[in-house]
Amino acid sequence: MIRIRNLTKVYRSASGNVRALDNVNLDIEKGDIFGVIGLSGAGKSTLLRCINMLEKPTSGSIEIDGVEMTRLSPNELKEMRKKIGMIFQHFNLLSSRTVRGNVAFPLEIAGLDRETINKKVENLLKLVGLSDKAESYPSQLSGGQKQRVGIARALANDPKVLLCDEATSALDPETTLSILNLLKDINRQLGITIVLITHEMNVIKQICNKVAVIEKSRVVEQGPLLEIFSNPTTEIARNFLKSVTLSQLPEELKDRITNLNHGHLEDKIVKISFFGEITAQPVISDIVRKFDVDANILYGNIDHIQGTPCGTLVVELRGNNGGTGEALEYLKKLGLNVEVVENV
């Protein structure tokens, strides 16, 4: 669907050249919700803007449905852009137009007749749940409602791709969730491929099936979400994952663990991270029975990513005659990520 090859973007300025994108390669399939995550300044916004040529790439190729974007004439580009919707962090609605007028705008640009426009606008407003706000002005709407208008507007010309530029970054967590759910519905119902950029791992976790991690103008990691989650290979990916998984133990727990550590020599506090299938197995009761250890669960956290459970348990193991060590070996053999917590 979208094929990006060797994409490089260099901004030239008096104070020297800035390489915003460096040899980026991405493959986005039809129907994907593709997330690009990176810190601010990493180049993700430039990457998104290169897809619809709001930024002209310095070199490299961007193919959408077999069409090479970098070689289009201005008129061809205008036509192509009508099939690529875009929503923005700050919504970018026309303050001089009502909700209806804003959604009608891209249809007017496309030169449709009044009647068709009215009919389409009604349907779009129904889709985003704003039929009762048709005559309101943007200034009278909440952030979430404004983004819904933005989405309706982006969908007006039946795009194949929807680009989301930090679409939820200006919204509170609850509104973010409702907007993400709307995007997911749109992806499922209309089959629209979504490319979104964000600095929040939560957004990625919530709706993306694929993710690319961008750092210092380069894509350092990309693949199916589950793969990145279960096996992040770069530091930056691990850091992003920390924000949604339990890598940092809560403060209260740290005190308790420090106190517990003064106990029996063979007592150990372990952090077990698990992912997928293994969650269904009774591993804790297994080791209790097999190795004669006591297990005291101190902290636990289970989450679902794309329907796959994943989580972390912090367990205090008390055993005799080497039972603890054997138990740890056993857990590792099962494919669990086991880490002995010593210094907290």
């Binding site: 205008k78 852009r81 690529i84 970018n92 026309l94 303050s95 001089s96 640009i109 010309n157």
Partner: peptide, 29 residues
């Protein structure tokens, strides 16, 4: 006029003339 609004119109495939008559002037009226 907010640059973002102009950018949004460009992303929708608006021509410069359409941007002037339908975005810039109405917004700055």
């Amino acid at each position: 006029v907010d640059r973002g609004v102009i950018e949004a119109a460009q992303a929708m495939g608006a021509s410069p003339l359409q941007i002037i008559t339908r975005v810039l002037i109405p917004e700055a009226l």
